[in-house]
Design a binder for these strands. Sequence first.
DNA 1: TCAAGAATGATGCAAGTGCATATATGGCGG
DNA 2: CCGCCATATATGCACTTGCATCATTCTTGA
Lengths: 171, 171
Amino acid sequence: MFDPHTVDQGMKRKPSTEATAAWIRLMRIQSRVLGAVEQDLKKAGFPPLAWYDALLELARAPGGELRPVELEKQMLIPQYSTSRLIDRLVEEGLAARRECKMDKRGLFVEITEAGRDLQKRMWSAYSAAIERHVGSKLSDADAAKLCSLLDRLGCSCDEATPVPPAAAAPR
Amino acid sequence: MFDPHTVDQGMKRKPSTEATAAWIRLMRIQSRVLGAVEQDLKKAGFPPLAWYDALLELARAPGGELRPVELEKQMLIPQYSTSRLIDRLVEEGLAARRECKMDKRGLFVEITEAGRDLQKRMWSAYSAAIERHVGSKLSDADAAKLCSLLDRLGCSCDEATPVPPAAAAPR
DNA sequence: TCAAGAATGATGCAAGTGCATATATGGCGG
DNA sequence: CCGCCATATATGCACTTGCATCATTCTTGA
């Protein structure tokens, strides 16, 4: 199983070799797959994935607008990161900042038509990339199994499906 | 609007909902787990994980030295990234650049005693973090299963085990 | 033997990220 | 109504990353 005197310099519990191997794979494979997908998008002339995620959240929101703080929670990125991502979307005319009369501290970010259009066009390339780098390498059953194993790592891996404008899975 | 199950902008194949879900989990969970582990290391006063990886590769190499190009292949990071990582290790006295007489274009990077020491001390915190964030959440069998599923995504996920100082020579 | 091209490593610059903090407003207890 | 703290967003600054390119040295083939 595991040779106790080989590892662990001193006190804390040691991970099994299986756990360690899983950790390594998790880091390396996701880095590789993410890189491949981002690369595909870039080669197709599209902006980074984060832009897609934001545009999708906005497009799905009622009225096509969200408070930055909501966006931040959906995307699980730091506050300042959200602020600057919005900067870029606005600069490119993909979204607009609107006043929030309910709470003068905040504001609304509203997706523009150009933004909706880009989101749709990106999904075409994005979905193809997912299929190429993930779907084509795993049966649906294996993909589901992978999901459930990964879910166990992120105690709470809830959250909206950051994917297609699809509908709640009919299953 | 558009239903991804029927629309599919034209020609590309669309990923199954299972594949898409797996993709999302892969991105989110690794981000979360990596963040947690890096955070643990930082809180323990250690440098980033990349430093550990580099130090381990150097420590395991015969003579404690490697060519940057070798390090680069082991760690799967870009060339300029390797160059700068070495800069920092050298600045901190954890490694040293040595002339390479065989090939004047290149050089050798040799780990110092301080470097070996840091690597060992980091493993203590690192292994504890892996156990806390991965090992404790998965049975060995599940971890192995996760490994094999991930491996299928990275067509070629070979390479040295970037992990414990374990089997290395006792000094 | 030499020119052309590949390999190795470093670096200038633009862009992105993390961290701390600034700014403005909302809410609450007194 | 006021002082105080919490919330929402922005930003200055240092550091890191990606990209392109440079300088040097090696290799190869005519």
